[in-house]
Amino acid sequence: MIRITVDAEPLEGRDGQTIAGVLIGAGRTAWRSAQTGDRGVFCGIGVCHDCLVTVNGVEGVRACQREAVDGDRVEREVRA
């Protein structure tokens, strides 16, 4: 079991899951604000960059590629 925060809200996931896996497992389907609405996973294999999040202060991390680590601080990215 791992615990991460997403925009300060705690979420639990299974060991080894990607950040996208934890988010989807917690019932979330969208976590990035694009100009035409919210986005989440689209390609799931690191190609489309739809699922980008900020992780521990570093922008532009593909949630579908990054394995979640206990204590990760995940924040939403907003495209103006």
Partner: peptide, 16 residues
């Protein structure tokens, strides 16, 4: 949100 590629559905199911 909720639309993915078939590959994403496969990857999420298998990997996560």
């Amino acid at each position: 949100p909720g639309v993915t590629t078939a590959g994403a559905a496969q990857a999420l199911a298998k990997r996560d």
